[in-house]
Amino acid sequence: MQVDSTRLLDAPLIEVAGEIDHGNASLLTAAFESTIDEGADIVLLDLSDVTYLDSGGISAILAAVRHLRDRGWLGAINPNANVRRLLEIVGLSVDNGFRVFADRTEAEKALGESSES
């Protein structure tokens, strides 16, 4: 698994590629913690190249959502159908601290709307 931290507009964007499991999810947790420590209210997570996710990765995502929920949200970009299904099973799709976007353009639009409100 590879984790890269970059930005989309003003928001931190974490790009992950490969398989996220119990053995490596701590890398994702570390990436989330550094963006949240910097005071980010909105964090984006590009899952386009994530081929596998287990509860190790889901726990990392849930922890980030819990930190952001009261002041912003975590936006997942382009999870594949299998990953998306897992996120739904654990209830993230109905969590107001979590959003899913089909692509970066959709995420940018939501960032624009959040900065206006």
Partner: peptide
């Protein structure tokens, strides 16, 4: 541990 652990069993049951 703030409710992020213990997902394994529900996932196995759901899948």
């Amino acid at each position: 541990q703030a409710g992020t652990r213990g997902l394994g069993l529900p996932l196995m049951a759901a899948l």
